[in-house]
Amino acid sequence: MAMIDDNSKNQIKTIFEQLKEQVNVVLIVKKEECETCSDTQTFVTEMTDLHEKLVLEVLDESDDKAKELGVTMYPAIVLLDKDNKDYGIKFYGIPAGHEINSFIMGLIEVSGAGEVLPDDVIARIEKINKPIDIKVFITLSCPHCPGAVAKAHKLAFMNKNVNAQMIEANTFNEISTKYNVSGVPKIVINEDTELLGDQPLDAFLNSIEGL
């Protein structure tokens, strides 16, 4: 049975008309001890089937390419552009529920059709000159989470020093406990700076600039 119903598929197809260039979607799965891998594969397959500019590649964790992408948990989705350039945009866990929105926004972003930010904001993002790692912990039932994920991914897309990951807190219980996640979206920047809630881009940038 299809995971995404026809009505949603039609809506998503209309949104995908915004896609500019090809996006190479890489799904990395693990054969054992991965409860959500097969569901995620069905989901990503159905999503990428909705537009010809979306090309899916499924890798096993043992694959060299998977290792090169620096993936540490499974399932993981990495979005690469048409030239296979890696912007450091990752989704750990299935981006279903509310998170389908950040997944779609990520695809549009990497295709080159993301929202253009005001000049002053672009300048601030371009100035980031040290390695920044952003983890955004989410739950699938959280309406505020996709906004936070999309902003983190946008920063990663715009500046090569920034890597950003969505982490589904219920799937990755261990790391969520480690980061003491009991409210979402929880944004962790470079391990020690924490933000809670769907913060404006300005708050992300203030935190990054303060590091």
């Binding site: 739950t139 039932s141 959280c142 309406p143 505020h144 009991s182 409210g183 809670l196």
Partner: peptide
Amino acid sequence: FYGKGVSYCAICDGSLYQ
């Protein structure tokens, strides 16, 4: 304890309390 057990959004954070 906001974000460390204190929440104002049950639909966001509820599933963390399985």
